[in-house]
Amino acid sequence: MGHGGDVINELSTDHQEVHEFFARIEEAPPAGSERKQLADQLTIELVRHSVAEEEHLYPAVRQYLPGGDALADKEIADHGRVEELLKTLEGLSPDDPDFAHVIVKLRTEVEAHIKEEETVLFARLRTVCDPSDLEELGDKVRTAKKLAPTRPHPGTPSTPPASKLLAPGVGLVDRARDFVTGRGK
Rank of each mutant, 00 (worst) to 15 (best):
E20I: 00
E20Y: 00
E20M: 01
F21A: 03
F21K: 05
F21N: 01
F21S: 03
F21W: 10
F22W: 06
A23K: 06
A23I: 04
A23M: 04
A23L: 07
R24A: 13
I25M: 07
I25F: 00
I25Q: 03
E26Y: 05
E26T: 15
E27A: 15
E27Y: 01
E27G: 02
A28K: 08
P29L: 09
P29I: 15
P29N: 09
P30W: 00
P30G: 05
P30S: 08
P30M: 10
A31Y: 00
A31D: 13
G32L: 07
S33Q: 13
E34L: 13
E34H: 01
E34Y: 01
R35F: 05
K36Q: 11
Q37K: 14
L38H: 07
L38I: 13
L38F: 11
L38S: 04
A39I: 15
A39F: 13
A39Y: 13
D40V: 15
Q41L: 05
Q41D: 04
Q41R: 14
L42K: 02
L42W: 09
T43S: 12
T43I: 06
T43L: 05
I44T: 12
I44A: 03
I44F: 08
E45V: 03
E45D: 06
E45A: 11
E45S: 05
L46A: 07
V47A: 10
R48T: 14
H49T: 15
H49E: 14
H49I: 15
H49G: 04
H49F: 06
H49Y: 12
S50G: 15
V51R: 07
V51L: 13
V51N: 08
V51G: 03
A52R: 08
A52H: 08
E53H: 06
E53D: 11
E53Q: 14
E53Y: 05
E54R: 08
H56K: 02
H56T: 12
H56F: 15
L57E: 10
